[in-house]
Design a protein around this nucleic acid. Sequence first.
RNA 1: CGGGAUGUAGCGCAGCUUGGUUAGCGCGCCUGCUUUGGGAGCAGGAGGGCGCGGGUUCGAAUCCCGCCAUCCCGACCA
Length: 568
Amino acid sequence: MRWSQLHIPTLREDPADAEVASHRLLLRAGFIRQLMAGHYSMLPLGMRVRAKIIDIIRAEMNAIGGQEFLLPCMHPAEIWERSGRLGTVDVMFRLKDRKGADMVLGFTHEEIFTTVAAELASYRELPQFWYQFQTKFRDEARPKSGLLRVREFTMKDSYSFDLDDAGLDKSFDAHRAAYERIFARLGIPAFAAEASNGTMGGKDSLEFVCPAQAGEDLVATCPNCGYAANLERATSALPDVEDQRGPAAPARLDTPGVRTIEDLATDYGLAAGRQIKTLVQVINGQLTLVLLRGDHQLQDQKLIDAIGVSDIRPARPDEIRAALGALPGSLGAVGVTDLPVIADFALRGRRDMATGANTDDVHLTGVDVARDIQIGTWADLRAVTAGEPCPRCGTPLQLTRVIEVGHIFKLGRKFTTALGVTVLGPDGSAIVPIMGSYGIGVERAMAVIAEVHHDDAGLVWPVQVAPFEVTVVPLSAKDHAVVTTAESIYAELRAAGIEVVIDDRDERPGVKFKDAELTGIPVRVSVGSRDLADGVVDVVGRASQEKERVPVDQVVKHVQSLLATLRR
RNA sequence: CGGGAUGUAGCGCAGCUUGGUUAGCGCGCCUGCUUUGGGAGCAGGAGGGCGCGGGUUCGAAUCCCGCCAUCCCGACCA
């Protein structure tokens, strides 16, 4: 291809609205343009990278037996009604057609693939791996960071249908292995972390995450045994606490002006770890007390996962006072029998603790959790913090900021049951297939590659996903020898099957060099009159910036071996 | 959805406090000449009516009211 005829609108200055590196560079280098918040147009260079990412994912999906489909992105709302996700997922875009029929834009495709699976008839057909590359629409509360969080994007989503749990495990493991190969080939240093299933339901899920400053999630990782879990799922092995027995009954402690755990600790010598934190949440409209150790933070997703309800909000002060007779700062669960109480495991067996007395400016001490509080549900509710012992091996955990690039779920039979999918088993009885679902955000993957592979001069694409492998740069558009040599090198590289672009613009060398670096093309062949006098050209690696003088008649061979090295 | 910021040419910005001739600068773009080994120089030129809608005023990019959009933080999120 000829640069002069490609639409590559590079910018000399950083775009004002782009903060994170991938956003800034993809805009500057002319790969994408924004239409509105969370919706981006993919320009020719962006399309080439996207196509390569898709090719790699497709190859790995096919390698594990995946069959490619393409399902509609617009669906009748009725199908989502049947699975119970219609009114409950707030990122779902909804619309009506001219007849007034309710439609939705798919934010995922479990339901729709399941309608296709209704034609599966026999156990002999299972397992099935089905996948597609399809646009997803998600009405994000806050799109941000360029392609990292958008409202419209391409997802590779796949779905497995198996006869039983053992089959699902196999399908899941096959996808896990495929994902590891995919991210390795894409140049994304991702690893798997345990995660919450969120609105997908099901029991197990793994996120593939890539460490990055622009990340929105935190994962806890163990440097020793490899334990890794999203903070919304991570646990740690807290040391057991042996409390003294304490008094026979809680004692009243007047604490005028005390509103926080910290105040109580500093003013009355009651360490935060010996306090009970009482939070009031409204769960499905029901006021509920949530108890944690004073020095622990509630992890919201854990609470949602523990009770299986996502309709949760903190109670308002007026609701709290009406129910408990005090304001936050003096709340406690001692003697509360008319409200559900959920407590974190770390409070189990604790004695001689301090908590609010449900009277403003009064606390209780000497509280024995088992004796004095009626706890309905025990759960893991607290957020792990850095340095706590790994739940598997005890090594201090690290917290790492990451971007989620893939997520694989063991779904169970939620969707096949809801949509009535069965196959006949060997004995003639109906079997409900068990599902898994597996997703990779294509443009997010592109942005993550850019996050990981760039420098001060611009993008540095790994060869496998680069928009072009080589750019040939004639340093003059007028010097006959330079132009004809560059053109013949360009033709030879093309003939050798290398993806090459020739920068045939009538621009000064500096402009071409800057653009070559900004766009991140892995290899540059510079043809100038000075070197040509010696019969050589410059071959420069984008990542290494190493320059080699190569005789004109050996350029193709040299470039081929350089590309092979870069591919590794 | 709460908090903060910003909307002036394709991009980056100034002008607004203290309303006043044809709204300005840099980059980019077009033409010509000279240049051409790291974002060239000179000359000439095109392009916006200041996010949108009202209002105040003799007069509004500048003041007032409402709305919209974009970015950042938080809440939320597959």
